[in-house]
Design a protein around this nucleic acid. Structure first.
Lengths: 354, 354
DNA sequence: TTGAAAGCGCTAACAG
DNA sequence: CTGTTAGCGCTTTCAA
């Protein structure tokens, strides 16, 4: 509604009297050089902050840049320097709030180092995932952080391990790929031990499909903790889901409770599942924690908000992301550097649900 | 494990007996051309699926590509074709589940058209936001979809409107930028009218800060609906928050209910807020909907999961994203095309909370 | 149907 | 301190 005038245009035409810098034809470094009366090399130097330029010359260049509205063409720069300064982050499902904070951590470290992060939702589909690794090969991205299960598992058999990437959360320590995550085995054990200490004996596990490495690790933790307590885990207490959605948790809970001797506690490998469980329990008239205790996993921000607030295993999500990014950057800086695998501490958050 | 021989090469290192294609030195199109005994032009043609290549020649090239493990260098291709095939999506806070589904919609349309989507979390910070628009100017991305408030508002005053971007959800129809969103004014009215029809008179509004355009629009809708019902809105019923977090909703509810004549219903401009409200209400002993009714906004997947299930205004999130992407693609394909603003329908989801 | 050659816009030797 | 110049790897006329 304000100053409109300026575009009745359509390209091809003169198009005069534009507001200041915006040039009608895209400028190149040559134009700037000419306008400043120097060579392109000099322009490049000041643009890249090299010190070997006389102050006076620098001023001239800066002035020309300023008043021409010139912007460096990163496409050209990328080709020349042979790097895209883009990092890929692959997540199986970025609608899951668990990933949000991790991705934030990655993003913040990346941009701190002059990289941009490209977020890719793979849907845990190996096909999609491969297509993203393909981007690496085509030099569209410099490196990748993968939160996806498939890659971690195929790293051995593939030439995947020659690509610059690191695994986050989903990792196999025996493969040659740098990783960061938590000790899922021990974390699951801690959760179960908490339930045990509350007097529960019939403790169920709601797990995701075993496509996930963490699922296997947590299941072993659960099983061993039970065994160590002298309890023989009933197979009927274990359910495997192919989803981490709220809904999946709700229906799993209902099924679990329909048994003749239903569990008195449920350990779930994800808070989203646990939230669904709580809702499912409620809808069949069971109270939490009085009738059945629930413990989740991850400690997403929602966990403390629901009713009752969720007891859960907290993962240091932000740090997981930051660490992953640092590992990757390190690999990028030095291809031959020995980048380690790192395990970050988890923590049991005792709230009202168990 | 197959045919290995060909490169024990590498410039400096031994490193022999590598698995198949993976070349130790990066291959270029010249290498492929040489290996296939044709010119680079021909290689380029088959790589790009041009039809004017003899079948036999094509085979030769493909074979060379295959067994050299060659991958096109997109950096070079980008420079040459002057496009990055990258789209930016700017969200104020991608931890908010509302954005997840929208982003999915964008992503799916983008990749369907051979583009990749770069997700950018701006934190609703105009500075960060500008830095992303800067990427457009530097040709690091071809276009952008912005879910952020600031851009929509500055589009007028700036040369922002010459850049290839579209607004999604946050838009000002009077500015020259293509947009997609819902009719926030009417949607808010619908929510209030629902509450009215349930007999409520003292209806509170929990709004976000007025940095958001939708906040202003929904507030007007709320106010007018009340007026139209002959109710004079008490200013004490309106609270403005600078956050959409669960926590913010919880404390706002407590404050609201501490008044001498507290509201009997609360309309909230976001489900995340509403979920916090429900929790806040519960923690001060108020029941929903018996003591106070709550209606949210967005219909994120969680809305149906909480206790009680949330009555809310559903936004067609997936479609919002898809439409935004299509508008942008259209603009990209034809800079002078007249890309319209589009409004998608919302829907009141009546559940148990109101 | 194919090849030769001219750049895309930039950075980085190498000279001066 | 500054300029000249040679490419980065690809696509695309233009000729053959």
């Amino acid at each position: 509604m304000a100053r409109s005038s300026q575009h009745d245009s359509t390209t091809l035409q003169p198009e005069r009297a534009r507001p200041s810098p915006r040039p009608s034809k895209e400028m190149s470094i040559d134009d700037v050089a000419e306008q400043a009366g120097v060579s392109v090399a000099t322009v490049s130097r000041v643009l890249n902050g090299h010190s070997n330029v006389r102050a006076e010359t620098r001023e001239k260049v800066l002035a020309a840049v300023e008043q021409s509205g010139y912007r460096v063409n990163e496409l050209a720069r990328n080709l020349r320097t042979a790097e895209s300064r883009l990092l890929l982050t692959m997540v199986p499902n970025f609608g899951n709030p668990f990933y949000a904070e991790i991705v934030r951590g990655i993003d913040s470290v990346a941009r701190q180092h002059g990289y941009f992060m490209l977020l890719c939702d793979t849907g845990a589909d190996p096909g999609r995932e491969r297509s993203y690794f393909e981007m690496l090969r085509r030099r569209r991205a410099d490196g990748a952080i993968c939160l996806d299960p498939a890659a971690a598992q195929q790293a051995l058999s593939d030439e995947l391990n020659t690509l610059p990437w690191v695994a986050c959360c989903e990792f196999d320590a025996d493969v040659g790929v740098p990783y960061v995550g938590i000790d899922n085995y021990r974390a699951a054990g801690d959760a179960v031990m908490h339930l045990l200490s509350r007097g529960h004996k019939r403790i169920a596990l709601i797990n995701s499909g075993d496509g996930y490495l963490f699922a296997q690790q947590r299941e072993r933790g659960y099983l061993d903790a039970l065994h160590n307590a002298g309890i023989d885990p009933d197979p009927r207490w274990q359910v495997h889901l192919d989803s981490l959605d709220y809904e999946a948790g709700a229906s799993a809970a209902a099924i679990l409770m329909a048994q003749s001797e239903p569990p008195t506690a449920i350990f779930t490998v994800s808070d989203t599942l646990a939230i669904g469980v709580v809702k499912g329990l409620r809808s069949i008239g069971r109270r939490v924690p009085d009738d059945v205790a629930v413990v989740g996993f991850d400690d997403i921000s929602l966990a403390a908000q629901i009713d009752p607030p969720l007891t859960t295993i907290a993962q240091p999500m932000r740090e997981l992301g930051e660490t992953a990014a640092r590992l990757l950057l390190k690999r990028l800086a030095n291809r031959t550097a020995n980048v380690p695998g790192v395990l970050l501490p988890h923590r049991l958050m005792v709230r009202a649900s168990a």
